[in-house]
Each structure stands twice: as C-alpha cells, then as structure tokens.
Computed example of a mutant assay.
Amino acid sequence: MTMSRRAFVKTSAAASLSVIAASAKAAAYPTRPITLIVPYGAGGPTDTIGRIIAEGLREALNGTIVVENVAGASGTIGVTKFYRSPNDGYTLCLGNWPTFVLNGAIFKAPYDVTKDFEPIGRVVTDPQIIISRPDLPANNLKELIAWFKSNGDKATQATGGTGSTSHVAGILFQHKTDTQFAFVPYRQGVGAAMVDLIAGRVDTMFSVAANAIPHLKSGAVKAYAVTAKERLGIMPDIPTVDEAGLPGFYTANWHALFAPKGTPKPILEALNAALVTALANPDIRKRMEDVGQTLPPKEQQTPQALTQLLKDDIATWWPVVKEAGIKNE
C-alpha cells in the first residue's frame, strides 16, 4: 500500500520531533544523579578504577555520579542488574574482560554480551602480577613453580570467583607449568582475597596491578613477575614473565564503560565525550597510572574501538575457556 502524502508528512514530522526531543534531552543531560554499577565488592581493583573514573566523569558532565557495588557470581549479578536498568543514560556499568568476555562462555546469564549493551569506551588496561603471601619460601618465579610442584596437594591460589581474571590466568598457568594447586574463590572479589593472602590464609594469587601495588609497596605481599612484555613503570623492579622464566605468558585485564541497549545516541555521544575528557585530565591520568593502569590512546577510546576489542577477545578467549573446561559450578 502506498503511503499518502498527508500520512508521509505526519510520519516525517513525528520522526523529526522525536530526534529533536532526544537531542534536547541530551543537551540537558544529566539532570539527576547517574549510577555507575561496579559488579564487584568495595575495595577491589575494579572499585578503585570505578571511583577514579567517576570523579573524572563528574567534572566532565558537571553532574553527580554514584558508584554502586553489586558483587557476586564473578560479576554476573551486577551486570544482570545493569541489564535490567532503564536505557535512559542514568545507569552505567564499569565492565571488564571477565564480565564482558569470559563470563559469556561460562555462565548462563539472561543477557547476551555480544548484543545487549551499548559500548561507550575503554577506560584502562592493566597486566596481572603473580604474587604470594610474604613468608612463602620461593624468591623468584622458577622457585615458585618448583614450590607448587612439591606442594601441589596443599598449595592454594585465591581467585575472584569462577571465570574471573585470576581464575583463568591460574588455570592457564597450571597448563603451562604442569603444576597443581587448589583454587579458593572469593564471592566478594579479589579485594577480599587480598586480605586473606596478606594474613597467610591462602598462598598465592594472580592480581591485577591496581589491587597489588599498594600491598607490594608496603611489603605485605611478595611479587614474582608481571604478565606483560614490559615492566611496570611504577614498580620497575618486578621482572616480566619473559625475564622470570615463563616466556609469552601474557594476560591483561581491561575496564570499559557500557550503557543499556537502546540508550539514545545523543546521550551515548555525550558520555563518550565525557569519558575522553576525563581520560585527558592530568589528575585522573596520574591516579590511574599510580595504580598500574595503562590508558588507551584517544583513537582507542571510541565505542567502535571497544566493539572491536570485544569481538576480538571473544574470538580469542571463548575457545580457550571452553577447551579448559571452565564452568560455573
């Protein structure tokens, strides 16, 4: 059926008004506090990064950003709450490699990480550091591997839960080094795991730099290697895995901002612009670098770059997770 001229004019006018209304709404955005869901417990590395970037966004948007910690099930509880939030730009999520890549291959969640969210932009990336309780007798990575082989029946490694960055890295480490140890998952994340590591209740952990650096500086934990090609600028005495005797064992975690699917495009554009502004803020940059984070170049701060990163990581890591038999138990 051919649309009449009058109907066409009415439809076009309605569409134009909708675009104008959305643009006007974005121009006034935000008019009330924005909630940033951090899908892990308070005190962990994602919480630290979330609170730093929240301050940058507050200044860039001239609005209020409230950080809400929603921990459990390796981040899936928080992401599920985020998935069910209104798509009006007032609920965001600080996702990362485990929650938006690994969990998609491990958990049966109500959402699809490949199509149910709007990427805003990448915030930071950081490698992991292999650490232990301070009194563990091994003094370098080769000695640590030997210690695992001699104590496989009682050695433990703390993780942030099934499918977390620390868990996946630990499984790959076992395969690469032919070692065994028991995993101890922490529902509240690696912040809680670090407390037990310092107290000596668990032996080792793969920790992202943001979580490990303060405790390494105080001497509360011991470091063996950084899982990257280059040493950390803030902790230059820690060798890379290549230097320490486990060449090519590279693992890194990234954090990024997401909005619910269907969030108006003008609001997404405003949020990305605010993120770019925040990441250019010298104070925010320094605070991120002080906890071992690498900030992406400006061309990698776009929604398109984040979309490609997700696609590439899913293609790389989903087969690894499935081959390793990592399941939600």
Rank of each mutant, 00 (worst) to 15 (best):
G248W: 13
T204V: 08
S12E: 15
Q180W: 03
T316F: 05
A252M: 08
V66G: 06
K108I: 03
P33H: 03
V67W: 03
K149Q: 15
A223I: 07
I131Y: 03
E143K: 06
R5G: 03
A192K: 02
K322M: 03
A210G: 09
S132L: 10
L136C: 13
I284F: 04
D203M: 07
G191K: 05
D283S: 10
R201N: 14
L136I: 13
I145R: 13
F249E: 12
A21N: 06
G41Q: 12
A225C: 03
Y250G: 05
Q293L: 08
P185C: 06
Y40H: 05
V241S: 13
I120S: 13
A22I: 00
S4A: 08
E289M: 11
L102V: 11
V195C: 01
D153R: 07
A109Q: 12
L279K: 11
N96I: 01
L268K: 07
K10E: 11
S164T: 15
N103M: 08
E55M: 07
L306T: 06
N62W: 02
E55T: 09
A109Y: 00
P297Q: 05
E55Q: 12
D290P: 01
A210D: 06
G89C: 07
V66S: 08
G95H: 03
R58H: 02
R287M: 04
H175G: 10
G63Q: 05
